[in-house]
Simulated assay, not measured.
Amino acid sequence: MYVTPPPQSVTRPVATPAWWQVLGPGSAALIGLFMLTVIYRFDGMSEIQREFHLSSQSLLLIGLVSYLVGTALTVPAGLLLGARFPTAVAIPALGFLFFGVLLAALADAGGLLLAGRALSGLGTGAAAGATVALILKVRERRGVLAGVTAALAVVALVLAPVIGQLISEVVGFRVIQLVAIPFLFIALIANAVVGFVKLAAAKRPVPPVPYPPAGPAGFTGGPWQPGA
């Protein structure tokens, strides 16, 4: 008699990231890059330097070096985990950015400002690393995606001092820090949506592997079996 073959295990192939998944950590990284240079201005002493009576060297240490150190510490984690778990990396990164800008906005001393800048750097590094990791894994239009992301990063770095100067001259430097918070919430929603869509796509059923066709009618076994 015909023996039904044992069921074959179905494995889902490892899917490469889609281009739209970059929107999650990418939005967080762009906000972080904007906050990196927003405390500076092109034509002289910034408002934050006047507020805290900082020298140029102190502003460099507190405003830039602390931020870049924090970024360097978390970029490897973003590169390592970002392609597989972009949402799990981006959401904590947004949390670091949120507390960092909030602490910088409420700081009344250079030490608190330094801590806020370092926290923002931690979030920026993780998000930037995850963004790069995703772009390297994307197969469809990778070059276009990398070019657009790099261009937006440069725009964020260059425009931040201009926008920061315009706002800080009117209402002070603290407001420019707080202005980032609504955008952080928008980025958080974007990451949540991307995560849900990715999870829904991963749960789609995989079609089973078809069994080989049965033997011809009247076949009851192989030549070595009774009834052949």
Rank of each mutant, 00 (worst) to 15 (best):
T4N: 13
T4V: 12
Q8L: 15
R12K: 09
R12T: 04
P13R: 03
A15Q: 13
A15D: 07
T16L: 12
A18N: 06
W20Q: 09
V22I: 03
G24P: 06
P25F: 00
I31E: 00
F34T: 00
M35C: 13
V38A: 14
I39R: 11
Y40T: 15
Y40C: 12
R41H: 06
G44F: 08
M45P: 10
Q49D: 10
R50C: 05
R50L: 11
F52G: 09
Q57M: 14
L60D: 13
L61W: 14
Y67S: 06
L68I: 05
V69L: 11
G70E: 00
T71H: 10
T71R: 05
L73S: 06
T74R: 02
V75S: 04
L81P: 05
L81V: 04
L81M: 10
A83C: 10
R84L: 07
P86G: 03
T87N: 10
A90F: 01
I91N: 04
G95H: 00
G95K: 00
F99A: 04
G100Q: 00
A104L: 01
A107S: 13
A109P: 00
L112K: 05
L114C: 11
R117A: 02
L119Q: 04
L119D: 01
S120D: 07
S120H: 01
T124P: 08
G125Y: 01
A128C: 11
A128I: 04
V132I: 14
A133T: 06
A133W: 01
A133G: 11
L134P: 09
L136N: 14
V138A: 09
E140W: 09
G143P: 08
A146H: 05
V148K: 03
T149D: 11
A151Y: 06
A151D: 07
L152S: 11
A156K: 02
A156C: 15
L157S: 11
V158S: 14
V158P: 09
A160C: 13
P161G: 11
P161W: 02
Q165V: 07
L166I: 12
S168H: 05
E169L: 13
V170Y: 10
V170C: 09
R174N: 05
I176P: 05
L178A: 12
V179I: 13
A180R: 00
I181H: 02
I181F: 05
L184I: 06
L188I: 04
I189W: 08
N191W: 01
V193G: 12
G195C: 08
V197G: 02
K198A: 15
K203H: 13
R204C: 07
R204Y: 06
V206I: 14
V206G: 08
V209D: 08
P212I: 07
P212Q: 11
P213D: 11
P213N: 12
P216R: 14
A217I: 13
A217G: 12
T220V: 13
T220G: 13
T220W: 07
P223A: 14
Q225W: 09
A228K: 06
A228G: 15
